[in-house]
Amino acid sequence: MRWMATVLVFLGFSACDQSRSSSGGKPLVVATTTMAADLVSRIAGDRVELRGLMGPEVDPHNYIPTLPDSSLLERADVIVYSGLHLEGRLQGTLEAMAGRGKRCVVLADGVGEERLLSPQQGFEGTPDPHFWGDPLLWRDTIPSVVMALSEVLPGSAAEFETGGRELADELLELHAWAKSRLQEIPAERRVLVTSHDAFFYFGRAFGVEVRGLQGVSSAAEAGLKDRSDLVAFIRLRGIRSLFGESSVNDKGILAVAKEAGVSVSPEPLFSDAMGRPGDRVEVAGESYDRGTYVGMIKHNVNTIVGGLK
């Protein structure tokens, strides 16, 4: 009896909701992760009303939508999400909505299946979702976004196309820059140890060996054996610095570092979420906003080089 009341109320309000139109006549685009939001904003600029669900330091694996989020998704003209169960709690919902005709862009679809990695810890089924670690793969998601936006706002199709191309070029440059920077670290010291397995694509793109404490999803608990195995690995390879992540609790990695007698980098890496928009820093003569995709990659690369060189 109780649930009926609940769902009934819910249904009622959802129905009411749909009658509300988006403000200002601009199409509403809802992006889940901060990276996805940044992608859309770079391509579309001011032409659409962009709303991001998650903020900085929010872990997409664990993200639980609120009622306002739910309503936002319902009202959106386009939903852009990463896919491959990165947004674990939302995926089922989003797929169901797509099935009912909602225009959804699954960024992971832009990357060909053969380029996706299967996770290291014997995960059957879904590939590793952290493909934005490789700027070239991120570049491949642009066309699908441009297409979706063009369908919704045909008048600005040309502008979207241009925006997309500019971003693509920038990502190419970024890839080259990152590669050369990371080569500054001698090969045997180029090992990245982080809180969870978020950097395999990054590692593959730039020749860095990667190892995480937890598996692909930060929602799973790191077992005792995972921790002691990692400590053994650190000792064996003589790794000197570990890296925390902005969106993941660092207690685990700190414990590992303490046991192995190494330090954790004072600056966490951005794995599943970017920095705060407008957070400009200047490193090695270069200034960038850590709240953007480009800034995020640059921050990660600089931090890693700083820690491992």
């Binding site: 819910f10 089922g92 909505m97 929602a219």
Partner: peptide, 15 residues
Amino acid sequence: DPDCVIFGSLETVVH
């Protein structure tokens, strides 16, 4: 995920 056990998903059950 174990969170589902604890938090429930009223927000998405309608969708």
